[in-house]
């Protein structure tokens, strides 16, 4: 059995593990967005925290594409993204022992560490990533949530996003993914600032509750 965690991409009707050297493929999707550290295996970050040298490589194998994608999206240039990615991994390794599988998946923890570092960098530089047009942003929301999700944390969150009203979905996406300020969102969508704040807060509360529910199920 592939020990990566069955993160698949579709190729000619088959689903393959994403790791370059892995030859496993499957007739059906097993876990889109699955965590690379299954409950049966020790989290990579805990192995890193223990000082296992191979775990550092494994961490980059597993989360390099994710960290790089977030870094590129939230950085003004590729050079800046490279600096950011390096800082994120160093952050990850120094905070690896803090990861608690009972609270969130390892992938979510990695994304949180990455986002914190990237937000800090943007704040210090006094810059925001270039805002997309609202139409483009709304399109991405519409297509992304159509993905098939099953039984894992991302699935729960995706189902929850599906249940949000379109405007709230758009507001949260602009705040969380696009990095728009609440004021920018209020102005561009022509809705009160207080409404934006409330929608972001309540949306994140609901996602937090969904994560908590998953943690309780896992225990």
């Amino acid at each position: 059995m592939c020990d990566v965690g069955l993160a698949d991409s579709r190729r000619r009707g088959r689903y393959r593990c994403e790791r370059r050297w892995c030859t496993q493929d499957f007739a059906r999707p097993l876990q889109l967005y699955a965590d690379v550290s299954s409950p049966q295996t020790e989290p990579i970050l805990h192995r890193v925290a223990r000082g296992e040298e191979r775990a550092v490589e494994a961490c980059m194998d597993a989360y390099g594409p994710l960290v790089w994608a977030l870094s590129r999206r939230m950085s003004p240039s590729n050079e800046d993204a490279a600096d950011a990615a390096q800082e994120i991994f160093i952050d990850l390794w120094t905070k690896a022992a803090r990861y608690d599988p009972a609270i969130a998946s390892e992938k979510t923890f990695v994304a949180m560490i990455a986002r914190r570092r990237l937000i800090d960098r943007l704040r210090k530089r006094g810059r925001r990533p270039q805002a997309q047009s609202l139409t483009a942003a709304a399109d991405v929301v519409a297509t992304s949530v159509d993905r098939v999700m099953v039984q894992d944390e991302a699935g729960r969150v995706s189902r929850l996003i599906d249940q949000l009203k379109p405007q709230q979905k758009q507001v949260i996406r602009l705040a969380v993914v696009e990095g728009w300020t609440h004021t920018q969102i209020a102005e561009r969508l022509d809705i009160p600032l207080g409404t934006v704040k409330t929608q972001v807060r309540r949306g994140l509360q609901r996602v937090r509750d969904a994560l908590s529910a998953g943690g309780e199920e896992a225990q």
Binding site: G64, M149, V177, V207, L211
Partner: peptide, 27 residues
């Protein structure tokens, strides 16, 4: 971390599957 994890989970749910490896120089 509660809301930061929630934001990360939201972000992941909407993120297109990353299509680029971490550059070799960074690795």
């Amino acid at each position: 971390d509660d809301f930061a994890l929630a934001a990360a989970a939201f972000d992941l749910a909407l993120l297109e599957e990353p299509d680029q490896e971490l550059p070799a120089s960074i690795r």
